[in-house]
Computed example of a mutant assay.
Amino acid sequence: MIDSETCKPVSNAAVDIWHCDALGLYSGYESFSGGGGGTPPTDAPSGTPTDVPSGTPTGEPPSGGGGGGHEEPTSDTRYLRGTWRTDRKGFVTFKTIFPGWYQGRCVHIHTKVHVSGEWTDAGYEGGTTCHTGQFFFDEETVLLSAEVEPYSTSTTERTTLDEDTIYDQSGTTGGLLKLKYKKNDIAKGVLATITVGVDPEATNTGTDDSVQPGASASAS
């Protein structure tokens, strides 16, 4: 992560990511989610990771489009949500599953970046949200993932990257991830990288409909 003005690393920032599970369900918002049936994954994470702040999820439930607004969680389940800090070189790493899809949206990951706060035993407190965005996956990779269980059991009609109402078709500038994996065995995992440029002085909570949710980024 770099400062979009100076290109210097942004260190000690808190980065949130959250996304739906293989069948399109968001933790805490299962009743809102547009998952498409099939067989739920038996190894889906449960509970709250020890190094992730607990409490109310910061992400909104899926709405099939852009815009702000916030709905209260409908359950206490927490999975596929995480927060961690950037190191002195601006790097942060998450280990998660490949997201699934739900009606009206392409495959994506949500993200927020917080600065000027304080790390405590409970997580990250205070500060401001300087960036809100989404990361996206190319169609070839999504099609390969859709052949693997439990993704292959989904009955939800999938929205392609070209059809999505949030992704602006600008490649890595719009949040498209650079992906690396074995094409003959994608089930072994996918490595996704991107360099995100943020303005630490800005406030961007993503609650304004006029805010472009795509990341200002380039592949690394």
Rank of each mutant, 00 (worst) to 15 (best):
A202D: 15
H131V: 05
T128K: 15
P200Y: 00
E157V: 13
T160A: 03
T155P: 00
L191R: 12
N12G: 02
A187G: 10
N204W: 01
Y167K: 07
S145I: 03
S33I: 03
T172D: 14
V196G: 07
R88C: 05
G117H: 00
F91R: 10
L179Y: 09
K180V: 09
D43Y: 02
A146T: 05
F98Y: 14
V211C: 08
E140Q: 13
D16A: 14
E163V: 07
P99Q: 10
K188E: 15
T128A: 13
G117Q: 01
P73C: 09
G123E: 01
E30Y: 04
T83M: 12
Q134I: 04
T39S: 15
N12Q: 12
V92L: 02
V52W: 08
Q212C: 10
D162V: 08
I2A: 09
V196R: 07
D76E: 10
P53H: 07
K112Y: 10
Y102D: 10
E118Y: 03
P213F: 11
Q103C: 11
D138H: 13
E140F: 06
E163C: 10
T193V: 08
S4A: 06
G82A: 15
A219L: 05
E118A: 06
T83Y: 04
G59W: 03
Y151F: 15
A146C: 10
D162W: 04
E30A: 12
K8D: 12
P57G: 08
E140W: 04
S54H: 14
G55A: 12
P53L: 03
V211W: 01
C130F: 04
V211D: 04
C20V: 15
G37F: 04
L179S: 06
K112H: 12
G37Y: 02
F135V: 03
P213C: 09
G82Q: 13
D76R: 07
D16I: 02
I2G: 00
S63N: 12
Q134K: 13
R158Q: 13
S11W: 00
R85H: 03
S31Y: 00
S170I: 05
A187L: 01
G38N: 01
